[in-house]
Nucleic acid binder design. Sequence first.
DNA 1: GTCTATGCAAATAGTTTGCACTTTT
DNA 2: AAAAGTGCAAACTATTTGCATAGAC
Lengths: 163, 163
Amino acid sequence: MNQSAIQRQFERFLKTRALKLTHQRRRIFERVFATHEHFSAETLYGWMRAETGSAVSRATVYRTLSLLVEGEFLETLDAGKGELLYEHVLGHRHHDHLVCIDCGKIEEFSDERIETAQREAALRKGFTLQYHNLRLFGNCAACTKKRERVAEIVRRASSKVDG
Amino acid sequence: MNQSAIQRQFERFLKTRALKLTHQRRRIFERVFATHEHFSAETLYGWMRAETGSAVSRATVYRTLSLLVEGEFLETLDAGKGELLYEHVLGHRHHDHLVCIDCGKIEEFSDERIETAQREAALRKGFTLQYHNLRLFGNCAACTKKRERVAEIVRRASSKVDG
DNA sequence: GTCTATGCAAATAGTTTGCACTTTT
DNA sequence: AAAAGTGCAAACTATTTGCATAGAC
């Protein structure tokens, strides 16, 4: 699915709910699908202010983001930074996230075994599964190395004190 | 591990960090381990006010909860209700959660296949896994039935209109 | 013209923090 | 006595909302 196809889908979505296609909504929509990064509401608001086009207020950014999530054009990700992150779904299969607790780097992964086991767990408990949220927290490769270097320095310093 | 054993563990934890065992901390600690439910900071604060004992302020409740999480006496769970829930770890194996989006009911489950697949995913991406967070959202058995009854009523009503 | 959207600033909600005073060690 | 803890109220942060005005249909 390409950019203009999804744009039409957005217009259809608005129409079915008797919502209006405003300049602000179009601008936000386009900007959101122009990035492949995860971004926060505040980040998006920053982009809107920095780039030219019809002005968009913070309130409208928040309201439009909620709308896009409802319409399943965006998904949210809470990386534990106190603010929600968003990512568009264009061309993205379902996936879960790995979050680096040192630098905030986010990697995506998916595993069919996990999906299956989740469905079974829900079934066992009598739940009708609607959606799920899996986040793995740890240190990315670079930050793991950094941590190892620090640990090495600490080890040498304390052996000096001991010895 | 029984109540008094974990209490001693708490005292040891405080000692190693040169923290003091105050009445407030002891009261909060005991109350938290007296429940097997998930609870929020505000709920705990409510319990503290309702029950007799040395007064505990809201700030101290929050500060002590953070301390207990750091010490790994408690774990947090974000059930998407805008407030964090806590649960103690006494006698609980690691588990993940199923959350009912209608009534808020929480069930626990665990599956070794999920744990394994997570470790593998982290490894593939070069991450050192520290912890993870898996929540399945859906409708519990009771709420699923309720939804089905509502759907049935809607179906009948619309067939009347059509016919 | 009607109904929805926007911008602004104020409100919200859960949580955190600065500071003067109290308690534990 | 020294160091840490507490309570209070104010601060904080991300997000939401009320309301008057502007814009899409």
